[in-house]
Design a binder for these strands. Structure first.
Length: 212
DNA sequence: CGTTCGATGCACT
DNA sequence: GTGCATCGAACGT
């Protein structure tokens, strides 16, 4: 893939207000940025999964609306942060029109900016670069994304102060692979996980990922 | 390389 | 009370 340039602007609402599978694919190569009081950390998105509607048995909206999944039903272009296993936060970008519950889970990033900060947050100074943002729980930890970021508007990046957004820095990714989603017990027949072929930051079994 | 298992908090029924 | 869209340590091959 090409060398990233700096200084993008947040992707517009219209980017997210589309079919979720298209958004999942198009997020590959985009840059997820979180600016906090501790500094700015950013990573290239290399792996995503789509969760689409109440008819998708693996989607958190499958049981219908609840307090917890409410952001899925809201305006596209907002963050949905899911706290799971008592210790991990997962970051999603809400997609499709208001009222239709869908989102893209970001599963892996390659560090681009603030790698020292990301390592500090992970608490593991000796990680290889491709491991810093490998896995959905790990990347949220590295970027400092918590439940405080749930419902954050991803289309706004004010000149200063805390902000969470996704931007295009002109990076072109190579081949894209599609497989079943990881870590779910239902909906495994759907190939709604996509990733950049060859990226060492992609989660899951390395031998499987490299053969796809 | 692979599999198994415990940690840990919260929303939901 | 149950079940997680996870992770990393421990252990087997």
């Amino acid at each position: 893939m090409s060398v990233p340039r700096r200084g993008g602007r947040p992707l517009a609402r219209a980017f997210y207000d589309r079919a979720t599978l298209d958004v999942a694919r198009d997020l590959l190569g985009k840059v997820l940025v979180h600016r906090t009081a501790d500094g700015t950390a950013a990573g290239l998105i290399v792996e995503t999964e789509a969760y689409v509607g109440e008819s998708d048995p693996a989607c958190h909206a499958a049981p219908g609306p609840t307090r917890r999944n409410a952001p899925l039903y809201g305006e596209p272009g907002h963050a949905y942060v899911y706290f799971t296993y008592g210790m991990h936060c997962l970051f999603y970008a809400v997609t499709e029109r208001r009222g239709f519950p869908a989102a893209v889970l970001v599963r892996a990033i390659e560090p681009i900016e603030g790698e020292a900060l990301m390592r500090r947050r992970r608490g593991r100074p000796h990680l290889a670069p491709h491991d810093v943002g490998r896995g959905p729980g790990n990347l949220a930890r590295a970027l400092g994304i918590t439940l405080a970021e749930n419902r954050a508007d991803l289309t706004r990046a004010p000149a200063r102060g805390p902000a969470l957004w996704i931007e295009d820095r002109g990076t072109r990714v190579g081949d894209i692979g599609w497989t079943a989603r990881i870590g779910i017990r239902v909906g495994t027949e759907l190939a709604w996980r996509c990733f950049v072929v060859g990226s060492r930051a992609v989660s899951g079994s390395r031998s499987v990922a490299s053969s796809e």
